[in-house]
Design a protein around this nucleic acid. Structure first.
Lengths: 188, 188, 188, 188
DNA sequence: CATGAATGAGGCTTCATTCAT
DNA sequence: CATGAATGAAGCCTCATTCAT
């Protein structure tokens, strides 16, 4: 989401993206405490270039989060198109946990930065998307009607965090999600 | 668990405990990035004393974790004594989430330090305790037989992380746990 | 004083002047530590353009000084034309102090850059001009004969510096100059 | 003026003083833009030690100023004791200009830092001291009664600045001060 | 043993200057 | 010529750790 009042030069844009990718990697691996210098190295640019594009480390973190959240929103949209409404929400849980390593950044940042970083818009969009999934699932009868968005978001976050920090393997992911899905499903 | 080859003088032991308490507070509030100096201040000792007791910041963190995990183990034992076997596991989930703020340290540390810190013993003990809870619940018929320890631990961790980093209020804690409990319960 | 071996295109010259004006403003307000980038912004040109015209920040500073000194010289000439010879020197003092804010740049630069910047020609010209003022005043009998140019220049500089860094208001300017003028005047 | 709630260890105090001296030198020579690192080198301590004693560069500058101003105040007091009241003020002017190189720091800081640094107490004390000198001189009849403190302070500052940034030699100092003294003296 | 001063590597950020577009 | 992105040295400051008192 580069703010392009003026189109932005080709090379600058390429660097911007390289930096964003490098940052995503680095912060995923080392947590948000990783140094900006390392991001620069991994991106193959000088440290000054990172700061030209993102005047502050927090700006860089914020931008990564925006990107990740945007990607999640589009994942949701894709699922709504390609899956039967009754399973799309479950599929989203599964995807999310499977990608957890990538999502680590999102969660860590939400945790670490907390008050400082603020990207309510992006978060709000994701919530609206997931709400769509939930409603569809309830209409299809695969999720109980007394389940509401907040706990779904909470479970999404929890399970994702858990997967990341706990290092769940595939089998464990499946078994854990099975419990959650059973909990969401119709009462009988 | 002071390494007591030589008994350790009374005042030294008192300092050790003060430091541990202070550290728990400080790291809970500020995250593991908080400075050792602040721990020393809060404990009312000089920085050198902290490093005499815990040669490395990581050692200090590790020791806190051990303490927290030990406390969890004793929580579990207490629940086994005081609660009907069918609900003890659920009670433990509830307790854990409610105390999440305190547990923040545990999780953060697990996340942050990851590979560096390693405290398999303490974790193992907690796992054995929880396994007891699980088996009892299954015997009592309040938890499905095809639920196994790994996913229970996973859910415990996930839900705890979620509660902390998501800042769930009491209502949200209850609703989220309701889903999980439904998922653990008998299939109808 | 653009170095015009080749005449220089009209737009280039306009940029040169814009940069010079901007630089004068910026350095007056923020001191010589202000960034070249800000000069470029204020001038409405790109940073590269500033460095094309002035290969070094020091070059830019030097050029500003030359300009300011040249302006002072022409102020002196004007006073010699428009004022009675007995008061022109005093008038120059007064003008200078009143404009001190503008002159801040000159002085700061002299102070800050010291050895690095060197602009003997321009300073020499100003000295010759002021010498004219001094001689006239002495001929008119308003300044003592045993006062020489060096101390006049020194007082000029001192009073100007003082006015700038001390933030003298009008009343204080007047009272201070009154002392200096009394000191310069005939003995009885 | 170390704030000695607790007496302060001998070595710490020695370092503190070494740093202060080094800083005075460095900032005199290179201006307030000189690097803290250089101060550390000159003082023969590590950079961290400088920051332990003065948490901020501004704190260091402020402390130097306090010290210099305090020394000036004591200079004044000494003059009042050792000199006839009619000449003490003039002697102070002379001393000040002669030491200008040392005082450079004071003035530069006053100029450069302006709003940021604030040490009103120390400045106020100096003003009160100089006021004493002025009154004495007026009582002794060596300074006109219609001269007031503000312009004396202004001239002091101006002449000092001038001496520093202008690099006046002894002869020039004398001639310039002669003019000022004549201006302060009785109207004939 | 406790104290707290000293160390110095490392992090974030700024800015003069260079160079591809 | 102008543009503005890239560079990288350098500055300020923090903090884990060591060591003299």
């Amino acid at each position: 989401m580069p703010p392009d009042d003026k189109p932005m030069r080709a090379d600058a844009l390429r660097n911007r993206n390289r930096i964003l990718q490098a940052a995503e990697q680095v912060f995923s691996e080392r947590g948000p405490a990783a140094s900006t210098e390392e991001v620069a190295n991994r991106a193959g640019v000088a440290i000054g270039t990172v700061f030209r594009h993102f005047p502050t480390k927090a700006d860089l973190l914020r931008e990564i989060m925006k990107g990740l959240l945007a990607r999640l929103v589009s994942d949701v949209e894709m699922l709504r198109r390609d899956r039967p409404p009754g399973t799309a929400l479950f599929a989203f849980f599964t995807t999310l946990v499977a990608q957890a390593a990538r999502q680590k950044t999102v969660l860590d940042l939400l945790a670490e930065a907390g008050t400082e970083l603020s990207i309510p818009d992006a978060v709000g969009m994701l919530e609206r998307s997931v709400d769509g999934l939930l409603t569809s699932a309830q209409d299809a009868g695969t999720v109980r009607r007394d389940v509401h968005l907040p706990e779904v978001m909470a479970l999404l976050g929890a399970v994702c965090q858990g997967a990341v920090t706990g290092g769940w393997d595939e089998r464990l992911q499946a078994r854990t999600l099975a419990v959650v899905f059973a909990g969401l499903g119709p009462a009988t």
